[in-house]
């Protein structure tokens, strides 16, 4: 390899061709790294919710409108998302025990819950009985819009794990995918629950 030895260190090979399975085994350290990255992401995305929840200055003097449907846009998506936390972690647990079918089953239920929550929130966003120029109306549509966005994200994340599991890429030795999806779902559900309390209860 005399030619290589004489090659200047700042010249590279002509092509780098990346061919890899989408996912492979993780070392404990890599798992910790993934968990840390997910935690940082969740912390960063919790901050917009702090801004939204801390809207007492906006809600000051407002009230929950009399014709408000407490179910659509309120209780129903809250129930769907919060129940989904349990199913998401049941899926994670199933994966750790090597029950691939159970993982896919629980996560599929969650995708359905997510789609249902999105539809209900969109219905609420189009049928509310008040003016968006009111104190309550402005906060309401902003919070529901945020909830729809994050619910779409967490549902897609769940869907990705189902596809990867079906392709044989998720196993007890690669627990990060289901775990991060469950963390994302839990974050979204808890954050929405906080918004729900601010909008409907407090």
């Amino acid at each position: 390899m005399a030619g290589n030895e004489q090659k200047h260190p700042f010249e590279a090979e002509p092509w780098t061709i990346i061919r890899r399975p989408a996912i492979s085994e993780l070392t404990p350290r890599e798992l910790r790294l993934g968990r840390f990255g997910a935690a940082l992401f969740v912390i960063s995305q919790a901050i917009p919710y702090f801004v939204l929840v801390n809207v007492r200055w906006m809600l000051a003097g407002s009230y929950i409108p009399a014709g408000m449907n407490q179910w659509v846009g309120g209780l129903l998506p809250t129930i769907l998302l919060v129940v989904g936390i349990l199913f998401a972690w049941l899926g994670v647990h199933a994966n750790l025990e090597g029950r691939k079918g159970a993982l896919q089953g629980w996560f599929t239920v969650n995708v359905l819950l997510g789609v249902a929550a999105i539809v209900i929130l969109l219905v609420a966003l189009t049928t509310y009985p008040f003016n968006t120029l009111s104190h309550y109306g402005s906060i309401y549509v902003t919070c529901l819009g945020t909830a729809v966005f994050y619910t779409i994200v967490s549902t897609i994340v769940m869907l990705g794990v189902i596809f990867r599991s079906a392709a044989g890429l998720v196993s007890p030795r690669t627990p990060y995918g289901p775990e991060s999806a469950a963390v994302t779902w839990t974050f979204n559900a808890v954050a929405w629950f906080a918004l729900y309390l601010a909008l409907y209860v407090i």
């Binding site: 990346i18 061919r19 399975p21 989408a22 869907l159 990867r164 079906a166 392709a167 890429l169």
Partner: peptide
């Protein structure tokens, strides 16, 4: 890759 295809 997120949906299971290999990285290419």
């Amino acid at each position: 890759p997120y949906f299971g295809s290999p990285v290419e």
